[in-house]
C-alpha cells in the first residue's frame, strides 16, 4: 500500500499587510480545494502586520479543520521575531 500526502507549496514575498489579505485568503481557499496541507514559505517576507497575522491564523485553522496543517517554512528574521513577540510561534507548525 502506498500512502501519499499531498502538500501544496506557496511562497510569498515583500510586505504582507491588510492590503494583501484578500488576495492571500483567496489563494489559500483555492489551495484547500486540492490539499489540506499547505507549506508557506516566508523567506522573503519583510513585514507582517496584525491583519496578516490574523490571516495566517485563519488559514491554519482552515487547514486543521480539514485534517491538515499550515506549515510555515523558511521564516524570515522579522517575521520570526513578530511571531515570537505575539507568542504565535507556539501556535504554528514552523520548520
Amino acid at each position: 500500500m502506498n500512502i501519499t500526502k499531498s502538500i501544496s507549496a506557496i511562497e510569498i514575498s515583500g510586505r504582507f499587510d491588510a492590503h494583501e489579505a484578500t488576495s492571500f485568503r483567496e489563494t489559500i481557499e483555492q489551495e484547500l480545494t486540492t490539499s489540506s496541507n499547505i507549506r508557506l514559505s516566508l523567506a522573503e517576507v519583510e513585514f507582517v502586520d496584525s491583519t496578516a497575522l490574523a490571516e495566517l491564523v485563519r488559514a491554519m485553522k482552515k487547514c486543521r479543520e480539514q485534517g491538515g496543517d499550515l506549515i510555515l517554512s523558511e521564516v524570515s528574521g522579522p517575521v520570526a521575531v513578530i511571531l515570537e513577540l505575539t507568542k504565535l510561534d507556539a501556535a504554528f507548525t514552523i520548520e
Binding site: V48, S50, L53, G77, I82, T86
Partner: peptide, 17 residues
C-alpha cells in the same frame, strides 16, 4: 494596540542587525 507589536518586531530585528 492593533499594530504596535509587529512594528516593534520589525524595528527591533532590523536595528539589532
Amino acid at each position: 494596540a492593533w499594530r504596535v507589536v509587529p512594528t516593534i518586531g520589525a524595528v527591533a530585528t532590523y536595528m539589532s542587525s
